[in-house]
């Protein structure tokens, strides 16, 4: 009886998971289906034969390699920027005393509550004024600092005993050296969480790159995907192939770094 019930639970779970995973399954299956499988009605649910031509077609439709590189490069620059700015400001708010500290910290936190879409027009105009339209800096400049990152690093630094800081000061260790040689190596978990968080969110940017880039060579992968979808004769197999290529890094991240991810995502949820 118990065994039967257990088997029932597993079956139930498997069905639920199958429903949730179906879009991924069908994108992968569709990317290797023949066009006949996809363009008859009803479309095939399983590939009747395997094709890889759709992947080559993606490369013809958009400069995929270049857009891939754009996306990765921009995301890495943003990760680097966010890590540096967040470590520095997190350190200040965790260890140092200065006038108006509370107000300053409040301002940093307030940046998290402002929706990016509300500022997108002025930021667009700023990029136009600076002549940065359709350039790399336009893609990463606004994202080099994050209120969330500052908050996360401050919280992590505060979890260290204050004596570590005092001892370093007594020994005459400078702030930068203390930060770089002691704090940063000890903070790898928080840095990892922040890096993954920043990478995923910038890799997925859509609205901003749509506005500030105009040529396929400067566009990011996300815009390229939308482009695949908007051409006159859109072919489902090519779209699926494009998506499969685009989500590979993300799939690796969520399956490999799930623990890291959860820690970052639930930073505010569970105490």
């Amino acid at each position: 009886m118990i065994r039967l019930r257990r088997a029932g639970t597993v079956a139930g779970l498997a069905v639920l998971v199958a429903v949730v995973v179906f879009p991924l399954y069908y994108a992968v299956a569709g990317s290797v289906m023949s066009r006949d499988d996809l363009t008859r009605f009803p479309p095939a649910l399983f590939p009747t034969s395997l094709h890889s031509g759709s992947f080559a077609d993606v490369l013809h439709a958009i400069p995929l390699a270049r857009q891939y590189a754009n996306s990765i490069l921009v995301s890495l620059v943003i990760v680097g920027g966010v890590l540096i700015t967040s470590v520095l400001s997190g350190y200040v708010f965790a260890f140092l005393n200065f006038p108006l500290k509370k107000l300053a910290f409040g301002m940093f936190l307030a940046t998290m509550a402002v929706p990016a879409e509300s500022m997108i027009i002025p930021n667009y105009l700023t990029m136009a004024d600076w002549g940065l339209m359709n350039t790399f800096p336009a893609l990463f400049l606004p994202f080099l600092a994050a209120g969330f990152g500052t908050f996360l690093m401050r919280q992590f630094f505060l979890s260290f005993p204050r004596e570590v800081y005092e001892a370093a000061k007594v020994e005459g260790c400078g702030h930068l050296r203390f930060l770089w040689q002691i704090l940063v190596p000890l903070s790898r978990p928080a840095l990892g969480t922040l890096a993954i968080h920043a990478f995923i969110s910038s890799y997925n940017h859509y609205f901003w790159p749509l506005l500030v880039t105009s040529t396929p060579k400067m566009q990011t992968l996300q815009i390229g995907l939308a482009q695949l979808n908007s051409v006159e004769e859109r072919a489902p197999d090519v779209i699926f192939a494009g998506v499969v290529l685009a989500i590979i890094p993300m799939l690796i991240m969520i399956y490999v770094f799930q623990r890291h991810l959860v820690r970052g995502l639930t930073a505010g949820a569970v105490r």
């Binding site: 498997a14 991924l24 996300q222 979808n229 998506v243 685009a246 993300m250």
Partner: peptide, 24 residues
């Protein structure tokens, strides 16, 4: 294993989910 799989949608950006569902 199920729990890991359940996180799958998180791998999709707005754009990649949108083009896939548009085809669906």
């Amino acid at each position: 294993f199920f729990r890991t799989l359940m996180a799958t949608p998180f791998a999709f950006s707005a754009a990649s989910a949108a083009v896939v569902f548009d085809a669906f």
